[in-house]
């Protein structure tokens, strides 16, 4: 009986075990694989990420200087982050909403001496 009373008091005063969701968001842990982003500024279009990506989510085109990611195919395994020789793909811990939109990174032409003629662009298509 006393034990029960103790439990009743404890449960009345205790806060819920769950988060008050919309107000309190769950923060992912620092090492979580959430989504990847590519910085087209340093990409050399070597295609290594395309070759290693298990579900073929990346398509790199050397001629067009484009790097296209299909987030719907990407399983966020982090293989491309590991293999990129220039370390231009980064893993972020937050999840992206599921989307069919593809991310296209285009690097503009430069004049061969490092000066950029066209700005780089990230397009979502």
């Amino acid at each position: 009986m006393l034990e029960m009373l103790g439990n009743v008091i404890k449960n009345t005063l205790a806060t819920p075990a769950t988060r008050r969701f919309p107000a309190v968001q769950r923060e992912p842990f620092p090492g979580t694989r959430g989504h990847i982003r590519m910085d087209s500024d340093c990409c050399i279009f070597c295609k290594r990420c395309e070759i290693h990506c298990p579900p073929d989510a990346i398509v790199v085109d050397r001629q067009d200087r484009t790097w296209i990611l299909d987030p719907n195919r990407c399983i966020v395994c982090g293989k491309c982050v590991e293999v990129c020789p220039k370390d231009c793909i980064t893993m972020f811990p937050h999840h992206r909403a599921v989307t069919r939109v593809r991310i296209r990174e285009i690097r503009g032409e430069d004049d061969g001496r490092g000066r950029r003629l066209e700005p780089m662009a990230t397009k979502e298509e």
Binding site: P28, F29, G31, T32, R33, I75, C77, G78
Partner: peptide
């Protein structure tokens, strides 16, 4: 699950085993 996420980076799919060892 939190322990798993903190150590491997994923809650369900650990992605931490690799041929030749572990990934992290």
């Amino acid at each position: 699950m939190d322990v798993i996420e903190a150590t491997t980076g994923g809650r369900m799919i650990f992605c931490s085993c690799l041929i030749g060892g572990v990934r992290r």
